[in-house]
Computed example of a mutant assay.
Amino acid sequence: MSVALAATALPDGLRWDAGRNRLKVLSPALADVVLRDPHIITGVDRSRAGMATAMPEENATPSITQFFELWYTVSDNYAPFNTELRKVFTIRSADSYVDMFERMAAERAAALPADGDLARDYFSPFFMDSTFAMIGVPEADWPNLTKVAKLVIHLFKQQLLGVTDYGAREQAAFAAVMRYLKDLTDRLLAEADSPFVDAARRLSAMDRSTWPIAALIGQLLMAGIEPMIVGGAIASRMVWSDPELPGLLRAGEVDAGEVAEECMRQSPPFGNVFRFVAEPCSCLGVPLEPGTIVAIDTEAVNLAESGPTAPVRGCPVRPTAVLTFGRGGHYCLGANTARRQVAAALRALVTARPGLRIDPAAVRIDTHNNLKEVRALPYS
């Protein structure tokens, strides 16, 4: 497979990455093909025997691998699940949370110590708490759910690195977290009131188990919070690289949402969107065999038709042209709220802490994993 592609003259926008044994997609047109072609899948085959019934018993907990498989497979109701959830995260619904996001971000920014690390002291707690509040989790559960989110984030990063063998201690911790998450899910379905929980109640009627809802909450915590932390760090580094920009944002002369959008277009939290060839096809202009890994280079696709703006003063393209949050059927469900959360966090920093200073050279964002990771974001 790799030998054949390595020896083939590839069309423009394709490159064979011999070091990682995968096909790289660099153009928007070919990225669209990959995201739409039915022969290229997310990596979990929903038609696989037993997948639709791979649910833990009500009094049992899923294995780590099984939990992550639940993210992609919601028994036979995957399509109605997606349809129902998209109603919860529309632009109109996201706009209804803006005042709450702004208030929570301002409170966090005002309470910051004189110096520290923004990722740890500001972005992580703000994105955690604002997401918990948005989905309707009682405030008393926020500390415990923070622990759940951190463990799920850690294990998901391990999955991205190919780690699937876990020790007894890690498995026991995961089982305890899963029992708590399932209990919280059942309590939310019985008592809580939010658009997300209302949709979750309708979704829970489609399946005999509420584990898919618990897995959905876990996915929302991972796929939403950690990329927002990275996005906030990327935006901060770029904003404070321009001596004039914090003041322009504070005065409202440039829009925080537009600036954050452009920062994440130039340097997206996810390096690649991965897909896997499930059946032989030639949709990209070359024969592709089953098992071929296809990696859409998010940054390359984002910048293919309009290069980076310098200094960063706003996004020059429409959000639909940006792959940072996915595209089409693979578009991030929480993109609308995530954009508003990152913008609120950035706006609160420049407004509540006008004397804030960030040394862009001291910011450390690790790119060894597909999901970038903030190692250091010092401020004073």
Rank of each mutant, 00 (worst) to 15 (best):
Y379G: 03
M128S: 14
L216E: 05
Q341Y: 07
A54W: 09
T298N: 01
M104T: 11
R364S: 00
A175R: 02
D242H: 01
P354C: 11
P360E: 06
A190K: 15
N77K: 07
L371R: 14
N370S: 06
G328Q: 02
P246C: 07
P243H: 13
D117A: 03
R187N: 13
A352D: 11
I135A: 09
L371Q: 14
I64F: 05
D255R: 00
S130D: 07
R327D: 06
L356E: 05
P280G: 08
E170C: 00
S306W: 03
A199W: 07
T73R: 13
V239W: 08
A348L: 08
E279G: 12
L161K: 11
D76A: 13
R327L: 12
L85M: 15
R202H: 06
E279T: 12
P246Q: 02
A214L: 14
R48L: 15
E102V: 11
T210V: 13
T90W: 04
T351F: 05
F174Q: 10
V148S: 12
P308W: 01
K87H: 01
S306D: 05
V286M: 15
A310P: 00
Y72N: 06
Q341A: 14
A54F: 11
M55E: 08
A18S: 07
W142I: 01
G224T: 15
P11T: 05
V273K: 05
W71V: 02
L118C: 14
R375C: 01
I91C: 00
A214F: 12
L288E: 04
D297W: 05
I135V: 14
Y78I: 15
L245M: 04
L26F: 09
A361Q: 15
R15Y: 11
R103W: 02
A49I: 06
A256I: 03
F89A: 06
Y180A: 09
R318M: 04
T185M: 08
P28K: 02
S75P: 00
V177F: 08
A172M: 03
V197H: 10
A278K: 12
G329V: 04
L333H: 03
D359G: 12
L323W: 08
L249C: 00
M238S: 05
P227N: 11
K24W: 15
G285E: 13
P138A: 10
A109M: 10
G355D: 11
L189H: 08
S63L: 07
S124P: 06
V152Y: 07
L249I: 00
M1P: 01
L349W: 06
I91M: 10
Y180Q: 07
Y122M: 14
F123L: 13
R201G: 10
A105D: 14
T8V: 09
D193Q: 09
P319K: 00
T351L: 04
R86L: 09
V317N: 00
P56G: 03
R375I: 07
E279C: 06
I135D: 02
Y331T: 02
R237D: 03
G116R: 09
N272P: 00
S194W: 02
N21M: 15
P113K: 05
L377M: 12
P354A: 07
V230K: 03
R313I: 07
G329E: 08
F274M: 14
D141I: 11
R36Q: 12
I365A: 13
V294N: 02
D121Y: 13
R103K: 13
F276D: 06
D121W: 13
